[in-house]
């Protein structure tokens, strides 16, 4: 359940931003969770609500932007979709494919007041 640690890390980043940007309440948190990031999105959403209790983002809505996994094949040089990090290239069957998308876990933006 590292989703809880991640949610608490989000809380820390939001609290830091609140101090820096002088806002008192967060209405919505937009986060990017890549398909290959190893994060269970539903578990993360569940932990998010708990982790934000008594913070400036208490009760804030979480919007997850789910980016698909993708990579570049070192053998044929083409872009290929990945559902697992060890998928072979969809074009030529070579592996490993260099992962170029879907690993990220980021807070994109906050809607604050």
């Amino acid at each position: 359940m590292h989703e809880m640690s991640l949610a608490l890390a989000v809380r820390d980043l939001i609290e830091e931003a609140a101090e820096r940007e002088k806002f008192a309440k967060v209405k919505c948190v937009r986060a990017e969770i890549g398909a290959l990031s190893g994060v269970e999105r539903e578990a993360f959403a569940f932990c998010f609500d708990l982790a934000m209790k008594d913070s400036v983002a208490d009760g804030a809505r979480l919007e997850i932007v789910a980016t698909a996994g993708g990579g570049r094949c070192p053998a044929c040089g083409r872009e290929t979709p990945l559902t697992m990090i060890y998928d072979a290239c969809a074009h030529c069957g070579a592996f490993p494919v260099e992962v170029t998308a879907g690993k990220d876990m980021r807070i994109l933006e906050l809607e604050v007041e």
């Binding site: 991640l6 890390a9 989000v10 820390d12 980043l13 931003a17 940007e21 002088k22 806002f23 008192a24 309440k25 209405k27 986060a31 990220d104 876990m105 980021r106 807070i107 994109l108 933006e109 906050l110 809607e111 604050v112 007041e113």
Partner: peptide
């Protein structure tokens, strides 16, 4: 503090920060 002012001024704060940055 800010909540007491009662002003509803929604705005967007771009963060673009990795969750595991810390």
């Amino acid at each position: 503090q800010a909540a007491a002012q009662g002003v509803e001024q929604a705005r967007l704060v771009r963060l673009e920060q990795a969750i595991l940055a810390k």
